Simulated scan of single mutants.
Amino acid sequence: MAVSSSSSAQQARQSLAKRLAELRRDAGLTGRDIARLCGWHPSKSSRIENARTPPSAEDIRAWCRVCGAPGQADDLVASLRTVEDMWVAWRRMERAGLRQAQEARQPLYERTRRFRSYSSWLVPGMIQTHAYTVATLRAIQRRRGLVDDVAEAVAARMERRRLLYEGDHRFAFLIEESVLRSGIGGTEVMIGQLGHLIAVGSLPNVSLGVVPMKPDRERWPVEGFWIYDAAQVNVELVSGYLTITQPTEVAMYSETFAELTELAVHGARARALITSAMEALG
């Protein structure tokens, strides 16, 4: 299991480790006893209990068996899966292709009513054009050496866009001005994408803000993230996909979004920046 720096993931790992330690104590065993009975190196049980080494599902089942509590193994393995899902390396998320990775997020989008998205790298997927999405996912597929299901993945993302136009979903998008001026797919694709941003920004349930490039801004760009209602944050990093549910961390991202919103321009001023970027492209 990959280890992330998120306190949400760390707290979940520590909670699992604590439950395993409680089982050991209830069974009247020491850490060395656990290691001996499971056939492990003497230090392994200590590393697991101190959340320094993540256990495997097999480790958990062996632990429960020697503690005389095999009936608790399934629940603890389920907890392990929850911890693993907080931090997912791209290679694991996309091992079956990009389409599955796109479709896996659909239930979260369906149940969310208030979306907040900040992007410092690319136009957010929800407001991408078909051509921009093709260029983006094709670049990912080639860079990571994935199976070629780009057409199916694009279709899945395009299907998600219907939420912009139906139901009671509300969206707030913030993008850095640099995203308007440095893109993917070439001039024609970028011009089409910028024109689409102007159209999307006019929807009654959408707020579109652009954070201008300035030499003296008070809040620097950060990693791109999505906030789903007030319950969950997803962060896309170079190495993987982070899910945050710890309320204090969710609040930090909400505060960051609010600070970036204060720096952004909206309405006519945002459209002027988008139009300027289009003109610069020719």
Results as ranks from 00 to 15, higher is better:
8 S>P: 00
1 M>T: 15
132 Y>C: 09
160 R>A: 11
165 Y>S: 10
8 S>L: 01
190 M>F: 08
45 S>D: 04
146 L>R: 05
53 T>H: 12
271 R>L: 00
173 F>G: 04
170 R>L: 09
141 Q>M: 13
40 W>T: 07
11 Q>V: 09
51 A>F: 08
182 S>E: 07
154 V>Q: 12
71 G>T: 10
216 D>G: 10
203 L>Q: 14
73 A>C: 02
40 W>R: 08
37 L>P: 05
200 V>S: 08
264 A>F: 03
148 D>H: 08
101 A>T: 11
193 Q>N: 00
51 A>T: 09
40 W>E: 10
279 E>I: 12
183 G>D: 11
282 G>K: 09
262 E>I: 03
155 A>M: 01
206 V>I: 10
147 V>N: 04
231 A>L: 12
155 A>L: 03
63 W>L: 09
74 D>H: 06
73 A>M: 11
150 V>F: 07
229 D>S: 07
86 M>Y: 13
169 H>P: 05
76 L>Q: 03
240 G>L: 06
53 T>L: 15
262 E>W: 07
275 T>E: 15
213 M>H: 05
238 V>S: 14
230 A>L: 07
18 K>G: 06
75 D>H: 07
109 Y>K: 00
120 S>H: 11
43 S>H: 12
22 E>L: 01
8 S>T: 15
72 Q>W: 02
109 Y>H: 14
40 W>A: 09
211 V>Q: 04
195 G>D: 15
12 A>V: 07
282 G>L: 12
82 T>Q: 12
236 E>K: 02
18 K>H: 13
133 T>H: 01
88 V>G: 02
178 S>R: 10
35 A>C: 02
175 I>A: 06
225 F>Q: 05
14 Q>T: 08
26 D>Y: 03
177 E>G: 03
85 D>H: 07
223 E>D: 13
217 R>I: 12
162 R>N: 07
244 I>D: 10
270 A>W: 03
242 L>E: 15
118 Y>I: 07
170 R>M: 05
136 T>S: 14
103 E>W: 02
68 G>P: 02
84 E>L: 05
253 Y>T: 11
6 S>D: 04
255 E>S: 08
242 L>Q: 13
45 S>F: 05
213 M>N: 09
3 V>G: 02
32 R>L: 14
99 R>H: 06
275 T>S: 11
28 G>M: 10
99 R>Q: 15
39 G>S: 04
181 R>P: 01
186 G>H: 11
52 R>A: 06
125 G>A: 13
196 H>W: 14
143 R>A: 15
97 G>L: 10
61 R>G: 06
231 A>F: 06
57 A>W: 08
268 A>S: 14
275 T>Y: 09
231 A>V: 12
123 V>G: 08
131 A>N: 13
204 P>L: 10
194 L>P: 00
136 T>A: 10
223 E>K: 01
184 I>A: 09
63 W>Y: 13
205 N>L: 00
79 S>R: 10
246 Q>C: 00
228 Y>C: 02
263 L>P: 01
165 Y>F: 14
69 A>K: 15
65 R>L: 11
261 T>G: 14
34 I>K: 07
131 A>H: 12
26 D>V: 02
161 R>I: 06
235 V>H: 10
153 A>E: 07
146 L>G: 11
58 E>G: 14
80 L>F: 06
176 E>Q: 05
74 D>G: 00
112 T>W: 03
256 T>V: 07
135 A>R: 03
134 V>T: 15
273 L>Q: 02
233 V>M: 00
